[in-house]
Nucleic acid binder design. Sequence first.
DNA 1: CATCGCATAGATACCGTTATCTGTGAGACT
DNA 2: AGTCTCACAGATAACGGTATCTATGCGATG
Lengths: 350, 350
Amino acid sequence: MPKRTDPGRRPTLADVAARAGVSAMTVSRVLAGNYPVAPPTRSKVLRAMRDLDYVVNAHARALAGAATRTVAVVLDDPTGPFFAFIARGVEQQAASEGRLCLLCTTHGDPEREAAVVELLREQRAEAVILVGGAQDTATYTERMTGFARALDRSGSRLVLCGRPSPGPGVPATVVEYDNEGGAYAMTSYLLANGHRTIAYVGREPGLSTTDERVAGFRRAHADHGAPLDESLIRPGAFSRGGGRVATEALWAERADVTAVFAATDMIAAGALQALRGRGVRVPEDVSVVGFDDIPLASDLTPALTTVHVPHEQLGREAVRLSLHRGPDLDDRVMLGTHIVVRDSAAPRRP
Amino acid sequence: MPKRTDPGRRPTLADVAARAGVSAMTVSRVLAGNYPVAPPTRSKVLRAMRDLDYVVNAHARALAGAATRTVAVVLDDPTGPFFAFIARGVEQQAASEGRLCLLCTTHGDPEREAAVVELLREQRAEAVILVGGAQDTATYTERMTGFARALDRSGSRLVLCGRPSPGPGVPATVVEYDNEGGAYAMTSYLLANGHRTIAYVGREPGLSTTDERVAGFRRAHADHGAPLDESLIRPGAFSRGGGRVATEALWAERADVTAVFAATDMIAAGALQALRGRGVRVPEDVSVVGFDDIPLASDLTPALTTVHVPHEQLGREAVRLSLHRGPDLDDRVMLGTHIVVRDSAAPRRP
DNA sequence: CATCGCATAGATACCGTTATCTGTGAGACT
DNA sequence: AGTCTCACAGATAACGGTATCTATGCGATG
């Protein structure tokens, strides 16, 4: 089976050296450029490399001690807009730092996640970036601590991107964004617009992002002296369907709500569907806002007022921080969020 | 600078061998499982591996002759839904074949594309999958032929996914989808619904996908004996904005159009915006259909009737074909497309 | 004029695996 | 009883680079 057209071996350093009439080391030096090589020699070597179509072997290079110049992103699913933008940030920053980017998916399966981490240990990736929300439980913390230590032992750096930190003393980099602050700002915006009966739709208990967003929701109420009715914090799945169902259920119970703060833009999309189905006008009768600022948000009718999460920057920071980091064992960065005002929220009608 | 917590070298085969009291080869054999090892020996070795937290070095392995077990996807931008789904297919199939997946982006820059191909040659990736439409020019064919040969020389396989073939005799795998057939089916559907003045919006001349789709559009008219007014084939950029602008321009010229066939779903979204802006009802007054079947299509109001492209399967096939391929120099596969009927097209009103 | 130093090139020893060839006992067969 | 296998383990040589040490020629220097 002719696996390749040309059965000849691919050329090696030695081949180039032979053709140029120099030693392998000289060729290596021309490649690396970290050692003086006489100009005539250099051009002879370059000539030979071109003639033979020489390409270095990245594996040999990695084996000989150099870094692998590879970072890895691990995510649930590359098709979600949220993750896709983070992946883009990672890839961009990796490229601009001269690194290649490995992409692995887990589909939320912890076993597969562990398998992937093991694979990446074999690869000696410089950084392994785990992306996406997670249940903030003791089990989670242990798992992450285990990953962090294991990767550290094999010379890689674990980066948690948009995930809770496993705590101090663990060799990992954490890149977060301000869920609490974003929810606080958005809730304040609704309160300032006169809303007093605001439902928070789509709480998934235990999920770290949810908890932080609810905390911001609470703090805003407290700071504005607005009483908060706990029954207005509604559970629901992180999907359009979840948002629709949760909103239906909410309206069946109480029709005095004047604003809906959806836990995510996707949930907001579901909420809009549900409200449209009931003939409720947005934003005239009810204001609806979301969280994430995915492209869908500006496509909805009405365009969604939401909290912007700097997805792409999150990915970039993950790479940047993990590659250039100080002597500290762990480090951590939190990126800001801000609200984006579009058309789906309005002052409360008298 | 404490790059790692533990200054001790990572354990190697030799370390494991020493601890288990056997030779390195025995350890290697336990790992590979392709040679008999006495059960007691095997467990001693496994024990030692666990104790030392041993992880093979993928680079050493690759260097020693084994395949790299790595495939690479190269795309313009991972955030577009179109590409994201292909990437997902690639990653899934790669994972299920025990391969890792490298992700590279080019942002449409041919120079960067060449640089990326060179990098992937260094990596000795088993397959390099180039994704996405391209200008089908002589320059393109030459470029791809060059890539194919170069990759072949370094033992990799070039895969063109959703891109035109560089012609026979070039060592490359081509995975396409049926643009012409999809456009034919959709145009036939519109014709069968009584439409006779159908505009094709969003032709980008030279782009291979466009040309094929227009060809299907033409053939359907011919087969149904419907005259085709060439002025109804409208140019426009492949974006929402492009669709809006092109549709505005179209309506300014002629208001007798009863159906719009947008070159992509994104363009269809723009067309819907433009029509809504003019107070034209869809599908009552005008039918609008798209091409691609990205998630956005079902989110639009009305939900878009469109041509389904098997994005994910495209990615899977790209990996599958490139890994298990016969003795042929080049091979080629075309996946089918089919129309998805939703709410944006209706029979022509009398 | 001998020596020192610098610029340049080569030799050699790894990096951590796997392929391949070479032992070596124990049981099977004649 | 002698040898022929076979199951198993080890030794050794790649794989294709880079780090490091050594060698050489030549102009500058004292």
